[in-house]
């Protein structure tokens, strides 16, 4: 068995990821303060929290454009993020069975990442849903709530401010939940820190038989 370093994450992707990570964490923390004003004040006054939340919101918006632009230009967007039919019918149950059962038995993962195919079926499905549904939904609702007066006609189509805010809120809960699971699954590389290192340095050490 030999150690091999494979290049998984190009620099623009890493930059996008970490900006996105910081942005989301700050949005969650300020979001909590805005949701229960007067109970938790992480960022001083309510007004400061609003300012930080707005700033991070647009930061994530810009960052999302960076991600989208990068993958569109490189032409890898569909290949990396849209799961083909076999992934759903075969790969997804396989990957789930690995995480829920085979991993504990000490079996090897059914999927080994490479530069061209770096996500397993589960990742693909999850990221597809997050990047094409949740993040755009969160950004759209966030932008609308940023200027309620301006976007009121649009919001009224969806059922008014309350509905838009409800969607924004429930999506943010999903992000928080995802954050925990995401961080945990990252520890399931061949070593505890392997996936973290990969996202910092771009290369991941993989053990290949032989």
């Amino acid at each position: 068995m030999t150690k091999e370093r494979i290049f998984l994450h190009p620099l623009p992707v890493r930059i996008w990821h970490w900006i996105h990570a910081i942005g989301i964490v700050l949005l969650v923390l300020t979001g909590i303060q805005l949701h229960v004003p007067g109970v938790i004040s992480v960022f001083g006054s309510f007004k400061t929290a609003v300012a930080i939340h707005n700033f991070c919101g647009f930061l994530v918006l810009g960052d999302y454009c960076l991600w989208l632009g990068y993958y569109v230009i490189t032409g890898k967007l569909i290949k990396l993020y849209v799961p083909p039919k076999t992934d759903i019918t075969k790969g997804l149950p396989q990957q789930a069975a690995f995480y829920l059962y085979k991993y504990f038995k000490g079996e090897e993962p059914p999927f080994q990442p490479c530069a061209d195919e770096k996500f397993n079926s589960l990742q693909k499905c999850a990221y597809c849903f997050i990047m094409f549904v949740l993040v755009p939904l969160q950004i759209a609702t966030g932008v609308m709530l940023y200027n309620i007066r301006f976007f009121k006609p649009v919001m009224d189509v969806f059922g008014g401010v309350q509905v838009v805010d409800a969607v924004h809120l429930i999506t943010s809960y999903c992000f928080v939940s995802f954050l925990f699971v995401h961080l945990y699954l990252c520890t399931l590389g061949h070593t505890f820190w392997a996936h973290f290192k990969a996202m910092i340095f771009g290369y991941e050490e993989v053990h290949t038989p032989g």
């Binding site: 409800a166 429930i170 928080v176 939940s177 995802f178 925990f180």
Partner: peptide, 17 residues
């Protein structure tokens, strides 16, 4: 209800972890 469902979603994630 949103908070209740939201907390349940988070607890679901944490439960899995």
């Amino acid at each position: 209800w949103i908070d209740i469902i939201g907390v349940m979603i988070i607890l679901g994630g944490l439960g899995f972890v």
